[in-house]
Design a protein around this nucleic acid. Structure first.
Lengths: 348, 348
DNA sequence: TTTAGCACTCATAACCTTCAAGTGCTAACA
DNA sequence: TGTTAGCACTTGAAGGTTATGAGTGCTAAA
C-alpha cells in the first residue's frame, strides 16, 4: 500500500512524463508538487517506488519514468475519477456524428477518423455484431450485357451487392430458379450455415440451372465474406509515424500489416474483465509482441438487439490516459445514441 | 555533344549510383569500365561532364552523382534500347493477371499491388476512361425494412449500387414512378448532364412522388460520384517509407495525402509528349514540389472503345530506370491484353 | 523522519584527431 | 594534344576526449 505522498509523487511523474517525454527528477518534483519537503526526501520516496516496481530509470543517473506497472497503478487508482472531456471535444464529437448516414459503415468509418484526429493516436472500430446473423433476403437483378447483380441482405441490416457475369444463353427463368433455391434453402439460415452449404450441397443444385456455376458461387461467397468480415475500421494509421520509433521501417510495415488483420485485432481488443467503461491494456498486457510499447484502450458499445461493437484507441504507453479515456468514454456514449437513433428508423 | 567515352562514364555513374547509392569516384570508374586510361583522365572527363551539368558532387571532395539532367540524358540516350524484362518478372506479371475477375476494379487494384511488389516502389493506376460515359441503366430494388437499393449502370460497364432509406408509407408504385422519371429523362445521358440535372429540375419532379426526396437524391449523387471518380488506385504506399528521407514525418504525411487525391495525381501522370511507350518524369519535371526528389514513370494503355487508362510507378530519382521502364512497359502490354479479353466477353 | 552535503554516474554535446576517398592542378610525357 | 603520375588539399565519417548538467545514493547531523 502506498502512502499518500507516494501516490502524489507517482501521479506527478506520470503526468509530467506523458506530457513532456522527459524523465522526471527529484528537484522537478519539488517544484511541481508545492510540497514542503526537500528533494532528498523525494529521492527517498522515489527509491521506494522503484523498489516496488512502479517507476524505473532510463540509466543509472537519470530521473524516473513510470514502469508499465506504474501506468497501470495510475490508471487504476490515481487518474481523476470524473474525467473531464473538454467542451470543444464534446461538441466536435457531436458535430461529427450529426447528419444523415445511409449505412452503418459510414458512421463507424467516420468515427475512427474523428477519434484519431481528436487524440492524435490511431483509432480502431468494430461494427455492431450480433452473434448469429442470418441471411434474410436474396435477389438477382439482371443488368443487361450478361451482367447480373447479386444482392444479399442480412437480418442485421447489412446489404451486400456484387456483380458477376453469366453466359449469354442464360435465361431469366434460370435465374429465377436459382433465386428460388436460395430463398427456399438458405434464406433464414445463419450465415455460417450458408457459407458451409455453399461448399457442399448447393453447387450440385445450381448446376441443374447453370452450366458454369463458378462465377455465381464465387460472387455469392465473396459477398458473404464481406457481410461477415468487413466490419473492421482503422483511422489515423499515419499517426503511428508520430509516436513509433521510426528507426526500424520494418516494424512500421509489420504494424500496418497487423492493423489490417481483422481477427488479430479483434482478439486484442477484447476488453479486460474489470467492468470499467473503458478497458485499458498497457504494454505487454496486449497479446502481441509488436505492441509491447503501446497501449490499447477499448470501449464496448451496445445497441440492443443490433448487437455490440467496439471502438478503441491505440497509442504509445506514454499516452495521456486521463484525457484519452475520457474522450473514448464520451465518444462511446454519443456513438451509442447515434446508432440507436439510426436503427430506430428501421425497427419502427 | 558527348564523346563516346563521356557517354560511357555517365552511364557507369548512373548505373553504379542507382545500384549502390554511393557517389562514384574516378578510381571506381576505372575498375568498372575496364578502359585502359588512368583515373586522372577519368577525372578530367568528369570535370567536363560536371561543367555540362550532367553530374554533380555531394560536397567538394566527394565522388560524383548524376544530376537530374544526367538522369534525363541517361534515360533519353544511354539506357539499353531493348530493355530486358526478366523471365521471372514476366511470368509473375502473367500469373498475377491470370484468373477470373468480376470487376475491372479488381484487375486494376491487383495490378498496382503487383507492380509495387515487383519494383519495391509505389504504383498508381487509373481505370480505363472514356470521355463521355453515359448512364445506361437504373433500378430500384426494395429490400424490405424501408431500405431500397439503387443501382446505376453506365455504358462503360460500371455498376454502382447504394442503399438508402425511405419513409414507411412509400409504395411500390411511387418507386416505379421514380424509376420511370430516371429512365425517361436521364438514362442515355452523359454522366455530367445527369449530375447537373440532379441539381436543377429533377428534384422537383421527384417531389411529386416522394415527400422527402433528399435521401434518394443524395444516394443517387453519391453513386454517380463513385462511378465517375472512384477510378484511382495506389499500391505499395508503404514502400515510400523505404526510399523517402524519413527525417521529416510531416513530409511523409503530406505525400500520403497527395497520393489519395485523384485529380492531383491524374494531372501529374499525364505523359510527356515524346511518344515513348513509357513516359519518364524526373525530379522537378513532375509538377509538384513534394515530388521533386522522385521520378514518375507513366504508361498509357488503350482498350479501344472502352477507353484509355494509365499505370505508373513513383520511385526515388535514383531508381533503376532500365529495369523499371522495362517492367512497366511489359506490364502495360499484359494488362491491355487482359482487359481486351475481359471486355470481349460483354461486347460479343 | 527529514535534510544538507557530497561523491559519483551517465547522456549529451562540443571539439579534436585520424582515416579513407576523392578532387584539382601541375608538370612531364607520347 | 591527349594522357599520366604525383601531390597538396578537402571532406565526411568514425572514434576519442573532455566538459557539463541533471540526476542519483549515501552519510551524518538536526
Amino acid at each position: 500500500m502506498l502512502t499518500d505522498r507516494q501516490k502524489l509523487i507517482l501521479q506527478a511523474i506520470v503526468l509530467a512524463y506523458t506530457e513532456t517525454g522527459h524523465a522526471v527528477g527529484s528537484k522537478k518534483l519539488v517544484e511541481m508538487l508545492s510540497i514542503s519537503v526537500s528533494s532528498a526526501t523525494i529521492r527517498n520516496e522515489m527509491a521506494t517506488l522503484e523498489e516496488i516496481g512502479l517507476i524505473q530509470k532510463e540509466h543509472t543517473s537519470s530521473g524516473r519514468i513510470p514502469s508499465l506497472a506504474g501506468y497501470r497503478y495510475y490508471v487504476d487508482h490515481l487518474k481523476h475519477r470524473d474525467i473531464l472531456v473538454g467542451k470543444n471535444d464534446l461538441s466536435m464529437i457531436r458535430q461529427s456524428l450529426d447528419g444523415s448516414y445511409a449505412k452503418v459503415d459510414e458512421i463507424i468509418a467516420n468515427s475512427t477518423n474523428m477519434l484519431s484526429e481528436l487524440t492524435s493516436y490511431t483509432a480502431l472500430a468494430i461494427k455492431p455484431e450480433i452473434s448469429d446473423v442470418r441471411l434474410s433476403g436474396f435477389r438477382l437483378v439482371p443488368l443487361g450485357n450478361h451482367q447480373v447483380l447479386a444482392i444479399l441482405v442480412t437480418d442485421s441490416g447489412e446489404v451486400e451487392s456484387q456483380q458477376f457475369a453469366i453466359g449469354k444463353d442464360v435465361s431469366g427463368e434460370q435465374l429465377e430458379a436459382i433465386v428460388r433455391i436460395v430463398n427456399d434453402q438458405l434464406v433464414g439460415q445463419p450465415l455460417r450455415v450458408v457459407l458451409q452449404r455453399l461448399l457442399t450441397d448447393i453447387p450440385t443444385q445450381i448446376t441443374q440451372y447453370l452450366e458454369t456455376p463458378d462465377g455465381f458461387l464465387q460472387t455469392f461467397g465473396q459477398a458473404l465474406d464481406r457481410a461477415t468480415s468487413d466490419q473492421f475500421f482503422v483511422g489515423g494509421r499515419l499517426n503511428l509515424l508520430d509516436f513509433s520509433s521510426i528507426d526500424n521501417p520494418t516494424t512500421i510495415k509489420d504494424l500496418y500489416q497487423l492493423l489490417s488483420n481483422k481477427t488479430d485485432m479483434h482478439d486484442m481488443m477484447l476488453p479486460n474483465q474489470d467492468n470499467t467503461e473503458v478497458s485499458v491494456k498497457i504494454g505487454d498486457e496486449i497479446a502481441n509482441d509488436l505492441l509491447k510499447n503501446y497501449s490499447l484502450l477499448t470501449a464496448t458499445y451496445d445497441v440492443g438487439n443490433h448487437g455490440r461493437g467496439m471502438i478503441a484507441i491505440l497509442g504509445p504507453t506514454r499516452m495521456s490516459y486521463s484525457r484519452t479515456i475520457g474522450l473514448l468514454g464520451a465518444f462511446k456514449q454519443e456513438l451509442t445514441n447515434k446508432l440507436i437513433n439510426y436503427y430506430q428508423f428501421y425497427d419502427e
